[in-house]
Design a protein around this nucleic acid. Structure first.
Lengths: 202, 202
DNA sequence: GTTTAATGTTTCTAATGTAAACATAGCGGT
DNA sequence: ACCGCTATGTTTACATTAGAAACATTAAAC
């Protein structure tokens, strides 16, 4: 929740206080129960208790609002991954981060789609310079000395977890926790014997 | 193109001849230039030269029409893969099919999304019992004797190519042909030394 | 305290999915 | 030949959407 202390307790004034944050909150909340396609600006405006077109004072259009939601989503994803890493420091960080990626996607399907699927054709690579991306690259560098090979490993690992998340989200694969562990098994993938020890075993 | 011989040349009668096929053709054509979200029933009806609500005589709702388009898309994908396999019989079929998957996705972004991303939450796994899926499984069985391991290989391979396709479609990775070849390299993946020989080299 | 820029509101338009009622045409049975 | 039945299209209607334009209010600067 983005909390913003508006001027104290001015319950209902003409101006909202921080409508922008309220709309983003409404968007994040809505994405927990709805899919992206079913979200309308009007709905968010209603939730924020404001007229439909007030949105346009803060976002040029719908895409801009979704783009802002995407940024919030990326931060959440990175935080979730780092929490997972902190919780099991003895495991392969590479695999732990990957599993967290998929689990976060399954736990936040709407937001995940906003981040990766929706993000309008040119506002792309919103993920490219995020904390999550840097984390992934540093793990790859640990495992591979050759930078070109490390880069390839990054892409392969990203594609694997992203594809797994997508297929599960779209109902093509069962959203099975054990399946995630099996697919993202450092011992079976990429010839990685892992720097740290691995754990999850079928 | 779905060609249907209506009764000969009855140019403009009240009844269309085969509106269902015409709508699907219009949909496939539209998906070549537009993304799924921008396609409307009314547009397809216009293209078919018919009133907006005529669609509902052939499809209960928009989702049903898209679902029919998805079936057509899956067939196209499988045909494309088999053409790729036939064109290079000496290569690793596993890798060739995977590259074809990604290339087809890049060549048909709209239709690919209809097949895998859109397909409504419960009409899922439209791909599950397709020719493409069976092909994938038979290749996995060639490489892995243990059926459980083969199944895991299927999922890993599918996730990898699907994720690569998605990330490229969504602008997160450059839609680079060489990158596809590098990521889907049987020598680097899954410890496969391949039954046949491999080719593509960086 | 007046001006001003930021923020919200009303009102409007064009597009969309879909329901309901109506129209037309080809078919089978008599 | 006629009569209806059913499949298929059409018209009309409605609720909802994204967004533009013009107007209202308020907080803050001067």
């Amino acid at each position: 929740m983005i909390t913003v202390s508006t001027s104290i307790l001015e319950a209902r004034s003409y101006h909202h206080g921080d409508l922008r944050a309220a709309l983003l909150d409404a968007g994040l909340a809505a994405l927990e129960t709805q899919d992206i396609g079913d979200i309308s600006l009007r709905q968010l405006a209603r939730t924020a208790g404001v007229s439909a077109t007030a949105v346009y004072r803060h976002f040029p259009d719908k895409a801009a609002l979704l783009s802002a939601l995407a940024s919030a989503g990326i931060e959440q994803l990175a935080a979730f991954q780092q929490a997972a890493l902190a919780a099991r420091p003895q495991d392969s960080g590479f695999a732990t981060a990957g599993r967290a990626y998929v689990r976060w996607a399954l736990a936040n399907p709407g937001l995940f789609r906003v981040v990766f699927v929706h993000s309008c054709p040119d506002t792309n690579s919103v993920f490219g310079d995020s904390a999550a991306a840097r984390m992934l690259q540093s793990y790859a560098a640990e495992v591979e000395n050759d930078p070109a090979q490390a880069q390839q490993l990054v892409v392969q690992a990203w594609a694997l977890v992203h594809g797994l998340a997508m297929l599960m989200l779209d109902g093509q694969l069962p959203p099975d926790d054990a399946l995630i562990d099996r697919v993202i098994d450092p011992r079976a993938l990429f010839g990685i014997q892992s720097g740290s020890n691995s754990d999850a075993s079928p």
